[in-house]
């Protein structure tokens, strides 16, 4: 960048590029953001676009033949419903559990100890939880022995290699995530607000309905979206704990098989795009509903 502006009096001269950049907030410090941005562009955005284009360049047939193949083969298109049937109930259950527990726990002194325990499944990851559940829920596992011992069941309840195994693993790995998000939203609400409602005559249930719930809905919508998206892309536990050929043949298994068993990257990309699209549809629907609610600071006053 050459700087000999001083030679020419700044009569009607356009400001230099540097000046114009600076006016938009781009100076040397701002450039520090460039490497990270480039990295994400190259390894996240570019593959996504590449995958999208690749999905329209099938190994054989016209541009849309991957998609027509997907939607004409029940073995493939059923995975959308199968996955939905796992992810939606698991997410709803997790939300339903997380709310009351977050409310109960928010003012406890040993809240941190409890949250630490709840964090464990997140860090163990899906593979270990699946392996643990195989042992624990198996026909000879502790859970079935307890059920039989207590007389709640006459024989072992089958909880692995079917729908319930995957469902339970989604609950165990998903609940802590939903809980921690919900807890951070609940504790983010200024305690003076329910106190103010109380002095104005609102009892606990009306404080919840008029104050907490409207303020929480936007956050809960986000938590729901994130949890749903995670659950919808369930993979290792569907293979290990479920019946990957049948009732828990989720969409990510279909994508994986296309890519790494049939080496049809084009089809695999198409399935990945369909998976992303389904997730996007649900997220957009939820977030559109969220617009109806107040969004803004959870505090009060100038805070």
């Amino acid at each position: 960048m050459t700087i000999h502006v001083a030679d020419h009096p700044p009569a009607a001269a356009r400001p230099t590029l540097r000046r114009r950049m600076a006016a938009a907030g781009w100076d040397r410090t701002t450039l520090l953001v460039v490497p990270a941005a480039l990295f994400v562009l190259l390894l996240f955005i570019y593959p996504f676009i590449y995958g999208l284009i690749l999905s329209f360049e099938p190994m054989k047939g016209g541009a849309f033949s991957n998609y027509t193949a997907f939607f004409s083969d029940p073995y493939l298109y059923d995975t959308i419903g199968t996955t939905m049937w796992l992810a939606l109930p698991a997410t709803v259950l997790n939300m339903a559990l997380a709310m009351p527990i977050a409310f109960r726990v928010r003012n406890l002194r040993w809240q941190r100890a409890l949250t630490t325990i709840l964090v464990i499944p997140i860090t163990l990851g899906t593979v270990l939880v699946a392996e643990g559940l195989l042992t624990y829920l198996g026909p000879q596992g502790w859970l079935n022995r307890t059920l039989i011992e207590l007389g709640l069941s006459s024989g072992p309840v089958r909880l692995t290699h079917n729908y319930w195994g995957v469902f339970l693993s989604l609950v165990i790995t998903g609940f802590p995530f939903v809980f921690l998000l919900t807890l951070s939203y609940v504790t983010g609400i200024d305690p003076a607000l329910p106190a103010a409602a109380a002095t104005l005559g609102a009892g606990p249930s009306r404080q919840f309905r008029h104050i907490f719930l409207p303020l929480l809905v936007p956050g809960l919508a986000i938590a729901f979206c994130l949890a749903f998206v995670q659950a919808y892309s369930v993979f290792p536990s569907a293979v290990l704990l479920g019946a990957p050929a049948g009732p828990t043949r989720v969409i990510s298994i279909a994508a994986y098989q296309a890519a790494f068993e049939q080496y049809d990257y084009s089809m695999a990309s198409a399935i990945a795009m369909i998976m992303a699209a389904v997730q996007l549809v649900v997220v957009v629907a939820v977030l559109a509903g969220r617009r109806l609610f107040y969004r803004g600071p959870m505090g009060s006053g100038k805070g």
Binding site: A195, A196, A197, T199
Partner: peptide, 13 residues
Amino acid sequence: FGMVFQNYALFPH
């Protein structure tokens, strides 16, 4: 009773 809070505690929504 009616109460006015230090940070006003107005319901933001």
